[in-house]
Design a protein around this nucleic acid. Sequence first.
DNA 1: TGGTTTGGTCTGTTCATCGAACCAAATGCA
DNA 2: TGCATTTGGTTCGATGAACAGACCAAACCA
Lengths: 170, 170
Amino acid sequence: MALGTDYPRQDCGIARSLELVGERWTLLILRDCFLGVRRFSDLQAHLDVSRAVLSSRLDALVAEGLLERVGDGHASYELTEDAIALWPVLLLLAQWGDQRTSPGRPRRTFHHVGCGILGRDGRCSTCDVAPHPRDVETRRGPGADPTLRSDPVSRALREPHRLLEPLVTA
Amino acid sequence: MALGTDYPRQDCGIARSLELVGERWTLLILRDCFLGVRRFSDLQAHLDVSRAVLSSRLDALVAEGLLERVGDGHASYELTEDAIALWPVLLLLAQWGDQRTSPGRPRRTFHHVGCGILGRDGRCSTCDVAPHPRDVETRRGPGADPTLRSDPVSRALREPHRLLEPLVTA
DNA sequence: TGGTTTGGTCTGTTCATCGAACCAAATGCA
DNA sequence: TGCATTTGGTTCGATGAACAGACCAAACCA
């Protein structure tokens, strides 16, 4: 972890977290992994990020135990339990960002499978449970702009998709 | 907002959020504001950040409606409701970072005033309510290192303190 | 009113990211 | 099986962000 992203003089859990997930692109990489993206090229094409930065970020996430490389050769990247614990952060940032920039018209919605939509506290509006991400389905919301991107991941995410399930791109 | 921190090609609430709070130091500034720090020099001394960066971050937070300059001359910085909505993110990052780097010995704990300690879901372990930050008291935890810093803010935070209340530094 | 403190602003240096080029390794197919 | 293609990097120069120090304007207070 480079010195330019650390906070050695902050005795604080937030600083410890930001040292790992605070760098540019990292949380968006994790977002994509929650959405089921598994392959380097899919991540790269969906994020439009330089391959050098993506490679460096993935290495760090693997080294710190947030991602796991599965399989030899063209590996698949999967979230660990530690990373999955960050889901509420991502959900809240998604909702907060949508509320500020597209009030009442979220770009993406999240649903407790077979139940209700998730509210601001991450709980199902129907049963009040805060479901595990694997029991969450994500859908394109009314505020989404389907014309902005057409990479394979963006196209696949036009359909509802269960979090943590591998996203199949053509 | 500079181009190097934006994600114009991401149609995503998380990207919108990160465009505002994803820059280095921003979330720590907001953390300090939750802890009741109000003045430029206290922020600067507690964060050990260059004054140019702090000034730039504060300007952006004010411009985007997350902070409010109160008073003329030597202004005071106060969180807006929009910013206060980010409290669960900060709480979760604090807990996640502490759990990973100091398991069982958090550097800082948060308590529902007159009730119980807050758990991982931000709810009071006694009454199960997720209290508003103004009803939360923060205390130094068993994992804190009181020798790391001795700026006025760090010294003041050795005592329990209510979130959002102005932190008085000598 | 003058000295001190606070809150900036400016600038050269260092580090991170970007974008393109190059290449090694893996995959797929005839 | 060998070759073409794809995938997953690595390298490098240009650009932008952060840092550290110096300077200074504005505010405060005795």
